[in-house]
Design a protein around this nucleic acid. Sequence first.
DNA 1: CCTGTAATTGAAAATTAATTTCAAAATAAT
DNA 2: ATTATTTTGAAATTAATTTTCAATTACAGG
Lengths: 144, 144
Amino acid sequence: MENLIEEFRIFIKKKGLKYTPEREEILREILEVEDHFDVESLYLRLKNKNSKISKASIYRTLPILIEAGFIQEVYKQGGHSFYEVTLNKAPHLHFICISCGRVDEVIDKELNFLIKKHEKDKKYKLLTYHLEIFGICPDCREVK
Amino acid sequence: MENLIEEFRIFIKKKGLKYTPEREEILREILEVEDHFDVESLYLRLKNKNSKISKASIYRTLPILIEAGFIQEVYKQGGHSFYEVTLNKAPHLHFICISCGRVDEVIDKELNFLIKKHEKDKKYKLLTYHLEIFGICPDCREVK
DNA sequence: CCTGTAATTGAAAATTAATTTCAAAATAAT
DNA sequence: ATTATTTTGAAATTAATTTTCAATTACAGG
Ligand SMILES: [Mn+2]
Ligand SMILES: [Mn+2]
Ligand SMILES: [Zn+2]
Ligand SMILES: [Zn+2]
């Protein structure tokens, strides 16, 4: 935990940026979120703890955290982006229920293998990938 | 071509909607687009042909065409959606260069197989999926 | 063919996620 | 401490998409 904070501080300094309490506070909060999050939910979590962080600062800090490799933008839903901590997490795909919005994660080694293969074929330098599968979840199917 | 138009007319009537020249014109134009398109480019194509179709009508017609299975929303870039005709096209993944915006398509039968497997496992009713791979394309790598 | 009603249209206004602006505050090097 | 530079919160702006609304059109029934 604290080692991650320190790692972030070093990253910030190496980039010639200033290490501010706001940036640290946002990272600490994100490390406590267990599932996917968007800007709004993160903002509300912080607000509940009487933090005075503005949404603008969240919007400004997320790209830094992505660049530092702490988080990734994983999918869009209802017109806005969702993120997740991808530090110690295997790449995975997302099943998204278009009826209730539920999102299930599935880790798949075959998929990683398949993507590596295409990376070589296409001579792209791979950064990240998203596999989103849209459907109707079991719960929503039986409601019908 | 004309059989697709007729298929659309039947779909529209079956849904209890009205079959308007605007809806038909939009479908005809989309069937002529060979690659990915967004609302703006479609609007400009129509405008160039002296069509009076409004953007509002395009925005209203695209979801109908998606429901009818003629097109799919395939990825977002620069904050807006791109679509493609998916009628006679095998499902495929997209390599997206985050530097120049270039998009390469790759058809992969293994991927379809892999997704079908998860569909069964998770008991989701599959509708569609997107695999987007973000990276730097060969051209952009050598410019560096 | 008319006629009535309900849907659709284009244009403009509204919405909303994300970005930018700006003056005040904070960081960090000297 | 002094100073140059960055960052902040709040408000304004941007831009894609959605909604509103009055006028037009589709089309079912007579
Ligand atoms: Mn996930
Ligand atoms: Mn494609
Ligand atoms: Zn569901
Ligand atoms: Zn490129």
